[in-house]
């Protein structure tokens, strides 16, 4: 489900079946490295929306968790953990973060949810067929990773 009024109606009806939140972690910056941050974020959003399409009956795709890259990592972690505990209290037992930002890797043990790090793919100059192939491969990888966490 997506963060839309229609889907929230469904969530309220079928609450017992929905136990997973997916949060894309999107870095923001306007100085150097802006482009890399943007394309990484774009890929994450593309993939998470594709995952949402295939597993919409069990997971809730939340609006992205955005942060400026200048923000202290500890502050970010705290903020994200705050989101996570709120979600867990509301009955979403699995909280999955999806990001292309390697900075999170180091702090993985401090996080309350599970981190899924995606490889950053320079999409810009790629032809359509190849692009689709990559999205397809990455989606099925992530899909299987999610499913294996459920059982």
């Amino acid at each position: 489900m997506k963060w839309t009024a229609n889907d929230v109606d469904m969530y309220e009806k079928e609450r017992q079946y929905i136990d997973t939140a997916v949060i894309p972690l999107i870095p923001l910056t306007l100085s150097e490295g802006a482009k890399a941050a943007v394309s990484g974020g774009e890929f994450v959003q593309l993939l998470t929306s594709e995952i949402e399409r295939q597993l919409k009956g069990r997971l809730f795709l939340l609006p992205p968790f955005a942060y400026f890259t200048a923000e202290e990592q500890s502050a970010r972690t705290e903020r994200l953990n705050d989101w996570t505990s709120q979600l867990k209290e509301s009955g979403l037992h699995h909280v999955f973060y999806v990001t292309g930002d390697r900075a999170w890797k180091e702090y993985e043990p401090d996080l309350l949810g599970e981190l899924f790090l995606l490889p950053v793919v320079p999409f810009e100059h790629m032809d359509e067929a190849y692009k689709r192939q990559i999205v397809h491969d990455q989606t099925s990888k992530l899909l299987n990773a999610f499913i294996s966490r459920w059982t």
Binding site: M10, Q54, L143, W150
Partner: peptide, 26 residues
């Protein structure tokens, strides 16, 4: 599209029940 909550079903994905369509969500 699964008639339960709209996930995507797969053919032959569940080892315990071969030759069936299987929905990974529930």
């Amino acid at each position: 599209i699964c008639k339960h909550l709209g996930c995507t079903v797969n053919w032959n994905a569940d080892k315990a029940h071969p030759n069936q369509f299987f929905c990974p969500c529930h």
